[in-house]
Design a binder for these strands. Sequence first.
DNA 1: CTTAGTGTACTATTACGTTAATACAATATT
DNA 2: AATATTGTATTAACGTAATAGTACACTAAG
Lengths: 121, 121
Amino acid sequence: MEEFNASKPIYLQLADRINRQIVSKELKAGEKLPSVREMGVKYNVNPNTIQRTYSELEREGILETKRGQGTFVTEQEDRLVQQREILKNEQILSFIQVMKEMGFSSHEIISGLQDHLSKFD
Amino acid sequence: MEEFNASKPIYLQLADRINRQIVSKELKAGEKLPSVREMGVKYNVNPNTIQRTYSELEREGILETKRGQGTFVTEQEDRLVQQREILKNEQILSFIQVMKEMGFSSHEIISGLQDHLSKFD
DNA sequence: CTTAGTGTACTATTACGTTAATACAATATT
DNA sequence: AATATTGTATTAACGTAATAGTACACTAAG
C-alpha cells in the first residue's frame, strides 16, 4: 500500500519526487500543482506535510506560490535547466562514492551498470 | 564537525558505513569491532545509538555479538560475498531508477558516469 | 575470587516528523 | 457582496530518534 520509506521524512521524499517530475518535464515551467489539500488526499498524507514539501521546493527556487491561487513550477527555465544538471551530478557523485567505498573498481561500476541498463532498452 | 545527514537516522547511516567497510574487506570476517562505548566516543554519539546500529547489522546477519566478549563480523564468508552482491545491485538499481525518473537516457547515464569516473583513475 | 570490559536493559528527557482540527488571509468566481 | 478555493498559521497530540545516566549479566584476565 505505502510508497514511502520509513528512513526518510515523507515531506523530503515527496520533494525528491516532484523535483524529478520537474527536471524530466513531466511538470512544465509555470504549470500549476495540485493544492496542498488535493495533494494530501492523493498521497494519503496530511496537508501540513504537503506544505512542508512545497516550502522546501520554494526554498530551492523551483516552485513559486501565489496566495489564493496556488503553487506553480517557476517560470524561470534557466533555473530548471540548472536544476537538472545539479541533480544529475549529485546522483552520479553519490553513486560513485558509495560504489568506491564498497571496493568496486571503475570498470566494475561501468560494466555492472551496463548489465542492468541492457534490460531497459 | 559532524559527518551525519539530518535526513536519515544516525544509527542507519552508521550501519551503511559499516556495511561498506565489511563488503570492501576493510573489516574482515571474524574481526572484532570496537565496543559500543568506544564506538560512541569515536563517532561522538551515544552508546545506545551504536547498539541500535549493531542490532540492525546483526539482524541482517553480517555481525554476531558474544555477550561479555564483543561484536564481530560474521565468520560466514558466503554471507559476506552475498552481501557485497546485494548492496551492489541495490545501488545500481536505485541509481538507474532515479536517473530514468529524471529523464536521462541510458546513453546519458553511461557517458555522464564515465566523465566523472575519469577523475578517479 | 576480584576486577575490568563487554553487551544489554531500563527510565527520563529533548527534538522532530506527522497527524488532526481549526482558523485566517488572499484571490478568483459568481 | 458573497462564496469557494487557495496558501498559511496555530495548537494539541503521538511516535520515534537520540541523548543521558544507571544498573545488570556475562566473560576473560589478574
